[in-house]
Computed example of a mutant assay.
Amino acid sequence: MGISINHISKSYKHVKALQDISFDVKPNELFGLIGPDGAGKTTLFRILTTLLIANEGNATIAGYDVIHDFKEIRKHVGYMPGKFSLYQDLTIEENLKFFATIFGTTIDENYDLIKDIYVQIEPFKNRRAGKLSGGMKQKLALCCALIHKPKVLFLDEPTTGVDPVSRKEFWDMLKRLQQKNITILVSTPYMDEAALCDRIALIQDGEILQIDTPETIVKQYPKTIYNVNASNMYQLIMSLKAYPHQYSVYPFGEFVHYTDTRDGFNPDELKQYLQAQNLSNITIEKTQATIEDSFMEFAK
């Protein structure tokens, strides 16, 4: 049971949140919507989960139309919004029972689906949700989204503000859920998480930039990238941006990712230029393109 999105557009007064969005998510696929804040990810999720109506276009979820079959869709999808939206004053167990009751089921009936996740927070089942850590809130919200055994799961920036260990645990859980015949659409601003998806769509300013597997998108990067480092990072960036042959320059961790306009780029020539700018401890080495590099290229 997949997702089909056809020419969806949505505007808020003079702001175009989504512009002619079209793509399909295959049954049982883990599909990532990758883009920065304000790209339109949440607006699209709200349309697909029947909370908003698009200005143009249509979409189907598990074969149901988001307009005409909205009541049926709500029975078959799980939605975890970006902001923690469970009841802060209820305990873990009370929240889970409440959502199970809404969908006419019980915790026991679908326990096999949430067991791997719930066992991690069960020791704290009597703790109020508002007192949980970010990682535990995340796991509780996922349990509540799964308690009615949905066919399609929507996760809107589920790991934002969560520590790296909890982020890894969360993606491990998604991989296990995928094996239980659940179609998953997840959005994230973290480019490193894109590599964990089967396919991804890069989105910026309400427009889709590219759709493909993470591996294919990275292979399409047209330039050779160099990791450049020096004694003064700020001065290094400014000097590289002033270099006549620079194609792109932006910070990437402890390095600056640099690409040149010329095919016959000579690193020694760039090093001499940087030394003339009074920079020292200069290193220039080839590196592999990443999803972030590809995104920056498509977003130009």
Rank of each mutant, 00 (worst) to 15 (best):
R128V: 11
A141M: 00
A100P: 06
M173A: 15
T91Y: 06
K97S: 14
G161L: 08
L153H: 13
E122V: 07
K151Q: 15
E94Y: 09
L146D: 15
V165R: 15
I102K: 14
G130L: 02
D172T: 09
L140Y: 12
K131A: 09
K180F: 10
Y111V: 01
D112R: 08
Y118E: 00
K139H: 06
P123S: 12
M136V: 03
G161I: 00
D116A: 05
F103P: 04
E169A: 13
G134A: 10
T101Q: 15
A145M: 05
L96F: 04
I92C: 07
K180R: 15
I147R: 02
K168Y: 12
I92Q: 10
T159K: 06
L140W: 08
Q138F: 08
I121F: 00
K139P: 02
S166F: 13
E169W: 10
V152S: 08
K131M: 10
F99T: 09
I147P: 01
V119G: 01
A141Q: 03
A129W: 00
E109H: 11
F103I: 13
I117V: 09
K149F: 01
D163L: 08
Q120A: 01
R127H: 08
Q120V: 05
A141N: 03
W171R: 14
L146F: 11
A100N: 02
K180G: 04
M173P: 06
K175M: 15
Q178H: 12
T101V: 13
Q120L: 05
S133M: 08
V119A: 02
K151C: 05
T106I: 09
V119D: 10
L140E: 14
L155H: 03
I114E: 00
D116W: 03
T101I: 09
T101A: 15
D112S: 15
E109C: 05
L174T: 06
G104F: 03
K131F: 05
L155K: 03
